[in-house]
Design a protein around this nucleic acid. Structure first.
Lengths: 243, 243
DNA sequence: AACTATTTGTTCGTATGTATG
DNA sequence: GCATACATACGAACAAATAGT
């Protein structure tokens, strides 16, 4: 059914990349299954191993493959994760083309809506997720990275509960950018906001009160994002010095 | 200043990829400049050409490099484009994990706001952009692809005028997904909406009337996205058959 | 614990394709 | 047309990791 052909003679790796990618997308190679070995692929595509390896690296970077070495190893097809998708935005921010003011504007527009949807969508089944996030937030941290992760968990969970993966991916992108910045320039994130900040928000979501959740999220983000915008200059300088 | 070291013995390509990427991000290699040749890079990192080539392919895929062959060729550092960033979402949609209903929900929430911002932000300097988009929309098309591109230009231009690149990237992602679907299952996009659809919207933006632009965009998207959601099933089937 | 088979990871030598001057 | 400089591609080999015997 699927005919693998080495069409282009010059940039063969891109060719192989596209063909394997469409094969995965169309379900020829399903999630969890193993791609043919590099040796087999060289025979199927009639190209050298180098070309195959370049294509596989590209597929791996795109988030389609997970590669294991050794006996029984190989390239296994994996489900795309939202993390993979949101990574691209971090690059955009780090190249100076995207400003924190822009991120703040989008966050303040989207996250209140996400909170509202989460409240509307909330069922007791979600309670555990939220409770865990809250517990994590009030717990102790092992590192700065850990501390930041804990403080963003609530946002992540709400984005998940809202039931829209596109919203979720956008929120995660913004969180990633914000977290990256906080990590570089803020010695103690508690200086920005304490663990009590989310209490009212969580209460509103649990009560299924959409408008209240929306308002609480907006209030919560307002001051925080203003300080983030202020800290950006510091971040940019630090990135120039030691990335 | 920058010390290139072959740290990891296994998976060296990822190591080289990260090091080159951070070098680009920190400004060691600026946009437009040329990376050292493959031969030079092998000496700098003390790894083989294969490793270097894999790393370069990854950087190229991420949108950091543009590679030219021949004398004076090499890997040139390029600015990240919004197209590159928005591509990731298309993958997510095509893997069935993201539904058109989700895309529609986000479009209907975000694009009216984008239209509002565009109206507020509008200056006579933007008039030409809009006029060109409108002219393209009412012109003649050479192909289906061309036709779809013309009908989405207005949305793209408004996203650009709104002045927030994050919004712009999100909008472009959604347009890309929608366009991909339309191209596969709709023989004539005119069946969905004619070229007159954007007239009121454009008028409102040009007048700087934010609320009107917002309302017009919402009205315009409403019926369109409903039909998109209906067409999704057809698209999924077609993708299974011939991707 | 040692051996083997399989598969990815890495290297080198060589040859070809492509664009510039 | 020719020489140059670069990416592109191939093939054969060896190294390292890992699962099973």
């Amino acid at each position: 059914m699927v005919l693998f052909k080495p069409i282009k003679t010059s940039r063969a790796s891109e060719d192989v990349f596209v063909q394997l990618k469409t094969s995965i997308l169309s379900g020829t190679f399903k999630s969890g299954s193993k791609l043919p070995s590099e040796r087999e692929l060289t025979e199927m595509f009639e190209v050298s191993r180098g070309v195959i390896r370049e294509a596989i690296r590209m597929l791996e970077l795109s988030g389609f493959l997970s590669i294991r070495q050794g006996h029984g190893g190989g390239a296994y097809v994996t489900d795309l994760t939202l993390s993979h998708v949101s990574n691209a935005f971090l690059d955009l921010f780090q190249t100076n083309t995207l400003s924190m003011a822009e991120v703040a504007q989008v966050r303040m527009f989207i996250e209140p809506e996400v909170a509202r949807l989460a409240a509307i969508n909330f069922t007791p089944a979600h309670a555990q997720q939220i409770d865990e996030a809250e517990a994590r937030e009030h717990g102790t941290y092992q590192s700065l990275t850990d501390q930041i992760a804990c403080l963003t968990t609530v946002h992540k969970v709400l984005a998940n509960i809202c039931g829209n993966q596109f919203f979720e991916a956008i929120v995660r992108s913004m969180l990633k950018i914000t977290a990256e910045m906080v990590q570089k320039v803020v010695p103690d994130p508690y200086a920005l906001h304490g663990p009590g900040e989310h209490i009212q928000l969580i209460k509103a979501v649990k009560a299924g009160d959409g408008p209240k959740a929306e308002a609480e999220m907006h209030r919560h983000l307002k001051d925080f994002m203003i300080s983030m915008v202020k800290l950006e200059k510091e971040y940019r300088q630090q990135m120039k010095a030691q990335p």
